[in-house]
């Protein structure tokens, strides 16, 4: 990898200072750096100044309330995995965090960084000389999407593990920015575009995540990856399920690694109130396949990832349904 571009690092002491330091097109926020630094080395993301937010007190801490859990964006994934409250009251989040990358990454990688990570593609996450010989791609310095050459858009894939878990739990994000603070559902942060997958304004900084704690729901997450110990999801499915007697009273299915955004599977309303029989699973299979659009952005065939995604959804629903008996 080539030498790092010239840049300066600024260390603000408050969120307000961090936002005031931000310059559109020049600055990037830096926390754990496990996603950003390799991208800077590969020259696929650029910055003249990095604003180190890892020391900001406002981004720290996990606070449990009666109805919800507040998780600071600067909480490390290791802390999230090991936190007793999270493990007891939102085990899905602890599990999803435990499946991110390797243990050394999780020590410094943060919740905010994982959620806001860049989209990935085989033709994008490569060294400069690799991309030169392949005439670059639409997402960085080129003009054609190497995955879908006739396409007008980029199909780089969102590969965060926390996002589907947060979507399945119905979490919301607290964001501070130059125009003030606001709260948005997780789904509203993302767009179906590999190049501009975050719907954030310049200078916006994720402060914390608010996870509602709903009684009676169980949830789980599974992912497909090549290296079992450390890898991005090729297909990841999170399911939250509520069982009432022998029927399913509530169901949320979210996916990652399959689109340019982490998405909630739509069209599941018709399945509420049903028993998970073959007709149910056929409809679930159809709904999952309709939501996802895996492309040739990884070395694993898109058709296989599609089949795995549907299979994981079924497996998780069956497991959670049985466990909730």
């Amino acid at each position: 990898m080539q030498a790092l571009q010239t840049l300066s690092i600024q260390k603000p002491e408050t969120v307000a200072q961090a936002i005031a330091l931000h310059r559109a097109g020049e600055s990037r926020y830096l926390a754990g750096g496990t996603d950003l630094v390799p991208n800077l080395r590969r020259n696929i993301q650029k910055a003249q100044t990095l604003i180190d937010v890892s020391g900001l007190a406002e981004l720290r801490g996990i606070h449990a309330g009666e109805q919800s859990l507040r998780i600071g964006a600067g909480v490390t994934l290791e802390s999230l995995c090991e936190d007793a409250t999270v493990r007891a009251r939102a085990p899905l989040l602890a599990k999803a965090a435990s499946l991110v990358a390797g243990p050394t990454h999780r020590i410094c990688a943060t919740v905010g960084g994982n959620l806001m990570q860049d989209t990935r593609c085989y033709f994008y996450n490569q060294s400069d000389w690799w991309r030169t010989t392949n005439e670059y791609c639409m997402k960085c310095e080129g003009d054609t999407c190497r995955v879908a050459p006739k396409s007008e858009r980029c199909y780089a894939c969102y590969s965060g593990d926390l996002a589907p878990a947060l979507l399945a739990l119905g979490a919301e994000a607290d964001i501070a920015g130059p125009t003030g603070a606001r709260r948005e559902p997780i789904a509203a942060l993302f767009a179906d575009d590999g190049m501009r997958h975050l719907k954030l304004a310049p200078g916006d900084l994720l402060i914390s995540i608010d996870v509602p704690l709903e009684a009676g729901w169980t949830a789980d997450y599974e992912k497909l990856r090549i290296r079992g110990a450390i890898d991005f999801p090729l297909a990841g499915i999170a399911v939250a399920l509520k069982r009432d007697g022998d029927r399913i009273a509530g169901l949320r299915v979210a996916c990652t690694g399959l689109n340019s955004y982490p998405g909630l599977v739509s069209g599941l309303d018709a399945l509420i109130g049903q028993k998970p029989d073959e007709a149910f699973h056929a409809a679930l299979d159809k709904a999952v396949r309709k939501e996802i659009q895996p492309m040739a952005s990884t070395l694993v065939a898109a058709g296989y990832r599609r089949r795995v995604a549907a299979g994981l959804a079924r497996r998780l629903v069956e497991r959670l349904y049985a466990a909730a008996a």
Partner: peptide, 13 residues
């Protein structure tokens, strides 16, 4: 005392 990837860490950090 905790493992860290030196290739992903700025010295000033």
């Amino acid at each position: 005392g905790r493992p860290r990837l030196a290739c992903c860490t700025f010295a000033v950090a």
